[in-house]
Design a binder for these strands. Structure first.
Length: 570
DNA sequence: GCCGTTTTCGGCCCGACTGTTTTCAGTCG
């Protein structure tokens, strides 16, 4: 069973307990456990089998529920709770404005057990007729049902950044903005983003808010005030802008960056030291004095902590490490010296070899790899061995004119269903660098996929496994495989695992990158660019690797070219 | 239900907003 399914099972228990008005701390324990499970790259049951105390937030009780979920797909507790509230009632909680208390009441008092029925009672007035529910609440819920049906899903990271930077550019251009930063999950470079958040300082906040609500991409204004405005952008995405006093900027930015779990742990850490954190600063409980913070650096320093990079604010072990000043020095975007996964118009790319070489050189790269598809990928105009040789000659010819950048003649070679490579060994041997990637037969069992990946990893010609899970964010969930076994094989073989920087992939994902690094695997961070302007996607890959805890020395394409050559000739 | 370089029992993050209320519960981030 996938960790995501286990987490969903625990969340369902939490939702049901909440409707029965169980102990709030017990409910929170289930939610915390669900989040903990979700952040693991390895199946939670495997970790617990090795070490019963191996996952913070999971004790004896929840551990048993996890075993039940693994064995039967459900838990006795959930079955019992469903006597009171059927499964469909839990779905009501996904409508914004519907909490557990209200969901329980509409079911008990109105017999509503689905979103469709909720919509009906919101329209016919029965919802507004409940005590402590008025016409405004009912209308709000109805509006949220409509919005929920239109765009329930979170947006991919790339979309979030393109939307929020466009708004930021407009606000900055209008003048009067002194500071402006993206907050929330976009700032943490989480792979999907719900709402967009901006935190800023302005000389005349009201004027800036006016600019915001009148932007052409603003579809609807939810609220407008001097400190906070909320708008719906075209496409239905919500954006909140908060403008604060300069002396509160650090505190507020920290608060609205999250993650929620990071902030909860940080507040617990503070409470244990006689301090109380809120978005307005840090209060010394004994004296009642609240310190305000202009920068996040000062905020973390005041807690006796090393500054915690936004990518690590996941509510894992970062506070404990920061207290010991033991956080890793993460790789920086400027550390990247090359891009080892690039396509041209020889296969399915849009640019010529020369255009890609110039673009990489203009980014200041010292090396790059041209890695067009192998022949088996007919849809991507994959190269035959003959065309591959012709392309290599063309690459050498272009490269001779750009001595400032080393151009590796490579290929992204399809890994067939049985783990064999799409080119014979003698063809692979001619290449400077080989990326093995899966593009077909993605519905294999975990056992098949594991064996397939390991066979490719152990092929001595294969240097990198490209987008290892094949997931597409918002599309397919990616292949299941045994992370431990695959990463152990990669560490033994010296085969790198790619963090594909395309925001539709981000694959390895953050937690998998962490697991790979713990297994001793080195990463590459590549854009897989099919056009010149996609070289700039590198930042998303670096941020994802940072979320996995990657340092410069963990990433091949942050190493000088001599080291790359040494690795490739291993 | 979980957890402990103050605790194995007694705690568990914090505040804003909204709507429905004569003092606050529920929801959200």
């Amino acid at each position: 069973m996938r960790n995501g399914q286990i987490a969903a099972g625990l969340r369902e228990i939490a939702d049901l307990l909440e409707m029965t008005e169980d102990n709030v701390f017990r409910i929170r324990a289930y939610r915390r456990a669900a989040e903990a499970v979700e952040s693991l790259a390895e199946p939670v049951a495997a970790i617990l089998a090795r070490d019963p105390k191996g996952v913070a937030g999971i004790g004896a009780g929840i551990s048993e529920h996890i075993q039940e979920l693994e064995a039967t797909g459900t838990t006795q507790l959930a079955v019992d709770l469903h006597q009171q509230f059927p499964e469909s009632v839990v779905a009501l909680l996904r409508v914004p404005g519907m909490g557990p208390k209200l969901a329980a009441r509409v079911y008990r008092e109105l017999g509503v057990s689905s979103v469709a029925e909720l919509e009906a009672v919101a329209i016919d007035g029965r919802l507004a007729g409940l005590s402590r529910v008025g016409t405004k609440s009912a209308a709000n819920i109805l509006r949220n049902i409509t919005a929920f049906k239109e765009h329930g899903a979170r947006m991919p990271l790339g979309e979030a950044w393109s939307r929020v930077t466009s708004v930021m550019a407009a606000l900055n251009a209008a003048g009067g903005v002194r500071r402006l930063t993206v907050a929330g999950s976009a700032r943490r470079y989480q792979d999907t983003v719900g709402d967009l958040d901006l935190v800023g300082v302005a000389e005349e906040p009201l004027a800036v808010m006016d600019v915001l609500v009148n932007l052409p991409e603003v579809e609807r204004v939810l609220g407008q005030g001097p400190t906070k405005s909320s708008v719906i952008l075209s496409g239905g995405r919500q954006l909140d802008l908060r403008l604060v006093e300069p002396e509160d900027y650090g505190s507020l930015l920290q608060h609205f960056t999250g993650s929620k779990q990071h902030n909860i742990l940080l507040r617990e850490y503070a409470v244990a030291r006689g301090l109380k954190i809120s978005e307005y600063g840090i209060e010394d409980v004994a004296t009642g004095v609240t310190r305000r913070f202009e920068t996040e650096e000062a905020f973390y320093t005041a807690l006796g902590l090393q500054f915690i990079p936004v990518e690590l604010r996941q509510g894992r072990d970062e506070i404990r490490l920061a207290a010991k000043h033991g956080l890793p020095t993460l790789i920086e975007p400027d550390d990247i010296l090359g891009d080892l996964h690039l396509h041209t118009d020889w296969s399915d790319g849009g640019a010529t070899i020369e255009q890609m070489v110039r673009a990489a050189r203009d980014r200041g790269y010292r090396y790059m790899a041209i890695s067009d598809h192998s022949g088996g990928l007919g849809v991507a105009h994959g190269l035959t061995p003959e065309r591959l040789r012709a392309q290599r000659a063309a690459i050498r010819e272009v490269a001779a004119r750009y001595p400032e950048i080393r151009v590796f003649a490579a290929s992204e070679v399809d890994i067939r269903a049985d783990g064999a490579m799409d080119f014979p060994d003698e063809v692979l041997a001619e290449l400077d660098l080989v990326i093995g990637s899966i593009h077909s037969a993605m519905s294999q069992s975990s056992e098949e996929a594991t064996a397939r990946l390991i066979r490719a990893i152990e092929n001595p010609h294969v240097d990198i496994i490209g987008h290892p899970s094949t997931r597409l964010i918002g599309g397919r969930s990616g292949m299941e495989f045994d992370r431990q076994a695959v990463f152990a094989a990669a560490a033994r073989a010296g085969t790198a695992m790619e963090v594909n920087a395309n925001p539709a992939r981000l694959d390895l994902r953050d937690a998998d990158a962490r697991l790979a690094l713990e297994a001793g695997v080195k990463l590459t961070i590549d854009t897989d660019a099919h056009a010149v302007d996609q070289l700039s996607l590198m930042e998303f890959g670096v941020r994802t690797a940072r979320r996995g805890g990657a340092r410069r020395q963990d990433v091949w394409n942050a190493a000088p070219v001599e080291e790359i050559v040494g690795w490739l000739s291993r």
